[in-house]
Design a protein around this nucleic acid. Structure first.
Lengths: 354, 354
DNA sequence: GTTAGCACTCGGGGAAAATGAGTGCTAACA
DNA sequence: TGTTAGCACTCATTTTCCCCGAGTGCTAAC
């Protein structure tokens, strides 16, 4: 959308002011606020035009104006265009070094929340495309085998397999060799029915044992592909913004951040979009966020490991700072990854099946 | 504390009524509510006595009475005593079967929250006293070894160990045998400096490799002993109780449920108390909960696996129902455990170290 | 020991009034 | 033709005021 220069300046001034105060902005304020040297009456005329265009709105007669979603969109687009090349990468968030990815991501969400005063979410990296490094089977008892799967990117998954019949220590070893020979280097997506049936043939007398193990492995691998782990922080920050905390959906919002599962939709839809995304109000892929704005950035740790970082706040969020911060963070994550190549990784899990 | 029968009846009536309505209870209400056949004037006299004893209080002159913490305590003690033997174990919560302990515990918190309309927390079982079943080392590359630890109760932990120097496939195998021979059957608490130095002697030329591995293992095992995993649900239920949601600590309360870490104190202090605990207001081990009541039950899955289930609500919570529900749940968990002996267990983890 | 009666207290709710920020419109001005 | 001063008007918000009623404490009678 093109806009007369003066109108654009006035709109920007209105939005800037509203971002700070959260109160409707009147013509007199703008008249003093800008360097346009125009009287409030003139501003009023322009504001009437902007309102007609649907960029600003009056909450009620005799109140100042506040931006509409469309107004914010104009502002954000303009800002993104202008700032494209000059984000302040210097702002390094103090990411304390921690010993596990899980803790690191929690920490990241926390630091971001503390820095921005908005609610944050970080999705743990998913690893489609990720290749198997090795599988290690260990016999636990007569009819149970522990399968440990390690993929590129050094992600470890383990699953305890309930065999249908007893299996000997020897057979487990054979299976181990067989599985590694057949599956090594495959991406997790490539393990399909075809391969399973091939494996069964190769397995010969071990064939009955192959199926439960492969099923369990596939299940363990797939388990969080649809439901990536999400870490959140700063949910309570939304209480700092009356227009959010008093909104009827505040409870739902907090609920969504607690259950995490509802945020999945947001994560999935941002995941395959390059760069930094800004969703304003109704643009959000997720109903409960329609009173908020969401800014997401996707990160890529290589080896097909990627996830997103998101910030949820009121529509009058400080887009400039948030986008800048996320931009810097992306670079920092890249740096961490490079540095990480030679370092160690650890993980743990626990689970019981019916 | 002993109380005249009539006073006790009146106190109980006041509390019962207040639990339902959340409004101060007047003398006339009690006069009609009970089967005592007393006029409101008489009730007033008794109420004055109860107030003097610190069991009830007037929010302001010309208002009815509400129970104090002490009043609730009296009520709860009496109720616990009376109901000691007759909790309705029949109330079976519908626990949908799920494939992993983690999911099961989340589910449990969720179901409890939905059933009680309070906020709930469930701590994942910790396993002090738990004995090692086996350790499986796998060489990942020249200087990295994956250690997978399985304990009784079939809990799996894994950690990627960064060796100080290169290690051969052969040496990993030797280490594997050595570790299992030495550590098998020990409880995780028993792995101490003594054992490590013994192991070093036995390891001979492998000695330099023993230390990083043992350190990593010890660390992986200890990692969530101090910080048990906590699952929460229904935090937003507190909005249903104005006295909580309008309290200044509501934000902190929700924050604590989000960060989870602050709840740890509560978990730890309930963990070593047998049976069902009720904390009323100031009795809570945790500052932020002083406007709430907390009911906790510890569960024991055998093999030293134990944790707690907790319910957090307003002081005017339906203690009777909550205690009953938790009582039933305890039994149900026991049943599940028994049934689980023969079934499979799985888990997964991911982490990166600096 | 119990009860009826009565004066008193005090929070809550609602109406009315005062406030003030901000508008739209008109007429004058450059 | 665009800009501005001026003015009447609107309406959410705040303040004030008053009334109502639930509930109490106390006293005197039963």
């Amino acid at each position: 959308m093109e806009l007369e220069d003066r109108k654009s300046k006035i709109l920007t001034a209105i939005i800037r002011n509203y971002l700070e105060t959260g109160e409707p902005v009147g013509s007199r304020t703008i008249s003093k606020f800008t360097d346009l040297q125009l009287s409030s009456a003139t501003i009023r005329n322009e504001m009437a035009d902007l309102e007609e265009m649907g960029l600003i709105i009056q909450p009620h007669t005799s109140a100042g104006r506040i931006p509409t979603d469309k107004g914010y969109r104009f502002y954000v687009d303009q800002m993104m265009e202008a700032r494209k090349h000059e984000f302040d990468d210097e702002k390094q968030l103090l990411l304390q070094r921690v010993d596990r990815m899980e803790a690191a991501l929690k920490q990241l969400a926390k630091v971001l929340a503390a820095n921005t005063n908005y609610a944050t979410l970080v999705s743990a990296p998913t690893y489609t495309q990720n290749k198997l490094k090795f599988i290690q089977l260990s016999r636990v008892d007569e009819a149970k085998v522990l399968a440990v799967i390690m993929t590129q990117g050094n992600i470890v998954k383990s699953t305890l397999v309930d065999m249908n019949e007893d299996i000997s220590e020897d057979d487990v070893l054979k299976m181990n060799v067989l599985l590694n020979a057949s599956l090594n280097g495959l991406s997790v997506d490539e393990i399909n029915l075809n391969i399973i049936s091939n494996l069964k043939t190769e397995a010969k007398e071990l064939a009955p044992a192959v199926e439960p193990i492969l099923t369990a492995i596939a299940q363990a691998i797939a388990s969080d592909k649809d439901e990536p782990q999400i870490y959140t922080s700063g949910t309570t920050n939304i209480f700092k913004y009356p227009e959010l905390s008093q909104s009827s959906s505040a409870t739902e919002l907090i609920g969504a951040f607690e259950e995490k599962q509802p945020l999945n939709e947001l994560v999935l839809s941002s995941m395959n979009k390059e760069g930094i995304q800004v969703y304003i109000g109704e643009e959000s892929p997720f109903e409960n966020l329609k009173d908020c704005s969401v800014v997401t950035a996707n990160y890529d740790l290589g080896d097909g490991l990627h996830g997103i970082v998101g910030i949820v706040g009121p529509k009058r969020m400080d887009y400039e700072r948030v986008v800048g911060t996320l931009h810097g963070l992306k670079n920092q994550l890249d740096a961490i990854y490079k540095e990480m190549g030679t370092k160690k990784i650890s993980g743990s899990g626990i689970g019981k099946d019916e």
